[in-house]
Design a protein around this nucleic acid. Structure first.
Length: 254
DNA sequence: ATGGCCAATTTTATTGGA
């Protein structure tokens, strides 16, 4: 089973590229983030025509997450199921092919002194608490744009990001707490040397210079992680006309 | 070669992204 996580940075702006990519690569499961679209603007029919089911948690203008899969998706949940109100569409889960799939778009946080950063920390702690309490009772992949540089190996120039909302002791500590809840970073497992990235700024020739960050992760419960054969970044999707600033991150499970 | 911000909004600047 192949699992991909991709921050599309607007599903409408990326529609042609997205559908072409689905047709060419036929992934089994895709976790999408930053749809920047309401449910009614999601390409349900295009995907159905290609043989894919979808579970969507859309939002106008900002955020928005979805799961797309070749097998039916059962028991979809929209929003971290802890009963706490959240105005942002950042989390969806569903089960397909016997695996619980979560697509999560972690808050960016803007600046460390901002309310948005406080919200980021609160949001990640909610996710951690849910994972620890009852989130990992079945084989699970937690996929998404974490907006966290988990380690200096995940940045081309870590010194330029140290202390930012993406890379500091607080968010790195919370990332470790997500792993401690019972998850394995399967891409790290396959590439312990690091220096591979999933996001490059649109500005300043960041992609040709490979001045990137790894922000997109696939975390799996240990049973699944043991079945992971390979993990890779689909750099071709950052090339050409109208790319997202994120490339899809893939993992293949036996 | 992969190329010098981009996307959405009742737009012609502003907000947010990372």
């Amino acid at each position: 089973m192949t699992v991909v996580t991709w921050n599309a940075n607007s599903i409408r702006a990326r529609l042609e590229r997205f559908l072409r990519w689905i047709r060419e690569h036929q992934p089994d499961v895709v976790a999408l983030q930053e749809l920047k679209a309401q449910d009614t603007d999601f390409p349900w029919q295009n995907l159905a025509d290609l043989g894919y089911a979808a579970a969507v948690f859309g939002q106008k203008t900002y955020n928005g997450v979805a799961i797309v899969a070749r097998s039916p998706i059962t028991g979809p949940l929209r929003g971290i199921p802890d009963g706490i109100a959240d105005a942002d569409a950042r989390w969806i889960s569903g089960t397909t092919n016997g695996v619980r799939v979560i697509s999560a778009y972690f808050p960016n946080g803007q600046e460390t002194k901002s309310d948005k950063y406080a919200y980021k920390l609160t949001w990640i702690r909610r996710l951690r608490d849910w994972l620890c309490a009852d989130g990992l009772r079945e084989p699970t992949v937690l996929c998404g744009d974490f907006n966290i540089v988990s380690d200096a190996l995940d940045a081309a120039h870590p010194d330029q990001w140290e202390g930012s909302v993406l890379f500091n002791n607080e968010v790195c500590g919370l990332f470790r707490e997500l792993l401690d809840a019972g998850l394995v970073d399967v891409f790290r497992q396959k590439h312990p040397e690091g220096r591979l990235y999933s996001w490059w700024d649109y500005r300043a020739l960041s992609f040709p210079k490979n001045d990137g960050l790894r922000l997109d992760y696939i975390l799996a419960t240990p049973d699944l992680a043991a079945r992971c054969e390979d993990a890779w970044v689909d750099r071709d999707q950052r090339k050409g006309e109208k790319p997202s600033d994120h490339a899809p991150v893939w993992a293949n499970f036996r």
